[in-house]
């Protein structure tokens, strides 16, 4: 019992520890929430792997922006990432339509090449503490509290990274609220979207831009591969709990808080990297959803029947 108590209380014992971990928790929740919202749309459009590809493909853009400006400020990095992501998307599209290569091969080829380019560029600038391959691969959310404080006039507002991620998160929330209907219809039935006169391509590219924005924002804390976990896990877990899109989107909020708190505790207990622990907590939480979820869970009797009927 005391063992559990220790795990539960571990990260929150002293005030300074609380403030340190609270910052990590807020950061983690913001990252998870923005990833989860964008990820829900990405998953229902069956573009999960494209999301993976783009999260790798934007690396050279980020690195170049960093090499040019010499700082990790999100503005130039976002522009660089968008350009690289655009290049990645265009070349996937071009290769799969104009050459005999299939889409999956085009995708695998493009994003790995871009990623390799990014890593090589990164290592040209050796001895870099802020941006190194480890950060690219699993981020260092644990260092977030060390970021500069944001100062506005004479008031200290708190951590700069948290503010910028919060801004991105707000953008995601607002756009998924405003564009909800466009995203819903274009994902569900393209022909209907067209016959309603919706700008299908604009929506597609808008979502891609949003994806790039979110990936850049979470790049520093979780890296390019774990961001995939944050995108897919919330919506896929919720898909077993709800059968309408709005509750799935809203459920991203509790999920993201759960992931970040769980991640902090797990990391505190086991000394795992926090970002990877967050993803791990998400995967562990996915299992009961998948098995016992009321909407299509594997071990639910009623769902087994409907499953048989559909197949």
């Amino acid at each position: 019992m005391s063992f559990f108590w220790e795990i539960l209380q571990g990260p929150w014992e002293t005030p300074s520890q609380v403030s340190w971990n609270l910052q990590i928790m807020i950061m983690g929740s913001l990252v998870c929430l923005s990833c989860g919202l964008v990820g829900t749309f990405v998953v229902i459009r069956r573009m999960a792997l494209l999301g993976d590809a783009i999260s790798h493909g934007i690396l050279p853009g980020i690195v170049l922006a960093y090499l040019f400006t010499g700082s990790l400020s999100p503005g130039p990095m976002w522009i660089g990432a968008c350009l690289a992501g655009l290049g990645c998307g265009v070349s996937i599209e071009w290769l799969s339509t104009r050459t005999p290569l299939r889409e999956d091969a085009a995708m695998g080829l493009t994003f790995t090449s871009f990623f390799a380019l990014g890593i090589v560029l990164l290592s040209l600038q050796a001895g870099n503490v802020h941006l190194d391959p480890a950060c690219v691969l699993y981020g260092d959310i644990g260092l977030i509290p060390l970021e500069k404080e944001l100062k506005l006039w004479n008031y200290t507002l708190g951590n700069q990274s948290i503010w910028s991620t919060g801004l991105v998160c707000l953008t995601t929330v607002i756009s998924s609220f405003v564009l909800y209907r466009l995203l819903l219809v274009t994902s569900f039935d393209l022909s209907l979207a067209k016959s309603l006169g919706m700008p299908v391509l604009c929506v597609q590219y808008g979502l891609m831009l949003l994806l790039a924005l979110v990936i850049v924002a979470s790049f520093e804390s979780v890296g390019v591969i774990l961001v995939l976990a944050m995108m897919i896990l919330p919506s896929v877990s919720s898909a077993f709990l709800f059968d309408r899109l709005p509750p799935i989107l809203i459920s991203c909020v509790p999920w993201s808080i759960l992931y970040s708190i769980g991640g902090i505790h797990l990391a505190h207990w086991t000394d795992f990297p926090i970002s990877a622990s967050m993803a791990l907590v998400g995967s562990i939480l996915f299992i009961p959803c998948c098995l016992f979820g009321p909407k299509g869970g594997v071990l639910r009797k009623s769902n087994m029947q409907t499953g048989q009927r559909i197949s």
Binding site: A48, Y138, L228, A229, T270, A279, L280
Partner: peptide, 16 residues
């Protein structure tokens, strides 16, 4: 989604 899920989860576990 299944592929992305397994990729990310196993990778996270591996990193940990």
């Amino acid at each position: 989604s299944a592929m992305g899920l397994i990729l990310a989860s196993f990778y996270a576990l591996g990193i940990c």
